[in-house]
Write a protein that binds this DNA or RNA. Structure first.
Lengths: 129, 129
DNA sequence: GTACGTGCAAATGATTTGCGTTAAG
DNA sequence: CTTAACGCAAATCATTTGCACGTAC
């Protein structure tokens, strides 16, 4: 159903994100991938990050209206610092299960994914204040 | 600690959002409030929506990088249509409780709020396809 | 009276688009 | 080959900012 064209650009983006837990922004993906593919354009990075997200090969996380990306991992949640926008992965099988149970009960929308974000101020930022 | 200056602009925005379950965008808040305060500027609407969110009088919901707003209500979650961006409120005490339990276990961040969003395609949009 | 809010217009920043060229299958 | 992807520059859209003036308290 979905034949994906593996261009060099897509391969490098996937490579960079594989096993990457830093939740990079488009700018950061662009900067990193450009080391390998000097001529890649930012528009291509945008297009491919969107494309790969839609295909389910990577995942988008939106923080303050800005897109960030991560590879596809086992189900987990995010704790986000309101101040520095750092994203910390957090795993809870209980919560995952509970949310999937809830998802089944929503009739108006056929749920295909769930996002759970915890917000607050991280230790580093609290220390600075 | 937080003495809020109740200007006409702020009062009208709060009035419009009170009991409003439609999750309006900034543009929609602006359009509505302008009927009462003809000379209000969009910048003021932006500034006040941000200000009132920070004060905890209203709540911001981000969909596809765009801000939407709702009055402060009992804890609930959102089901969002990927296609038309419609937001549907969904209540589950189980899930709320479970998420609050999880929040306590996150050490790196002192969690002060949790957002749970369910994504999928709504009934209307599925019908059109 | 004074600090804070407002209106306006211009600036910013992220993301998208149009189009001629290139490359994957 | 042929269609989808790329690179580039320009366009778009949401949101922010600088500043002179106005107003809540």
């Amino acid at each position: 159903m979905a034949e994906i064209k593996y261009t060099n650009q897509r391969i490098e983006i996937l490579n960079y994100l594989e096993g990457n837990y830093t939740h990079p922004s488009v700018e950061q993906v662009y900067g990193a991938v450009r080391k390998k593919l000097t001529r890649i354009s930012k528009a291509t990075v945008y297009q491919n990050l969107k494309f790969l997200s839609e295909k389910g090969l990577i995942r988008e996380v939106n923080v303050k209206g800005v897109s960030r990306f991560e590879p596809m991992l086992e189900p987990h949640h995010h704790a986000i610092c309101r101040n520095c926008s750092r994203i910390i992965d957090f795993r809870s099988e209980d919560l995952t299960e509970c949310s999937l149970n809830s998802a089944k009960k929503i009739k108006e929308i056929k749920v295909d994914s769930v996002n759970i974000n915890f917000y607050g101020i991280c230790a580093k930022c609290r220390a600075v204040k």
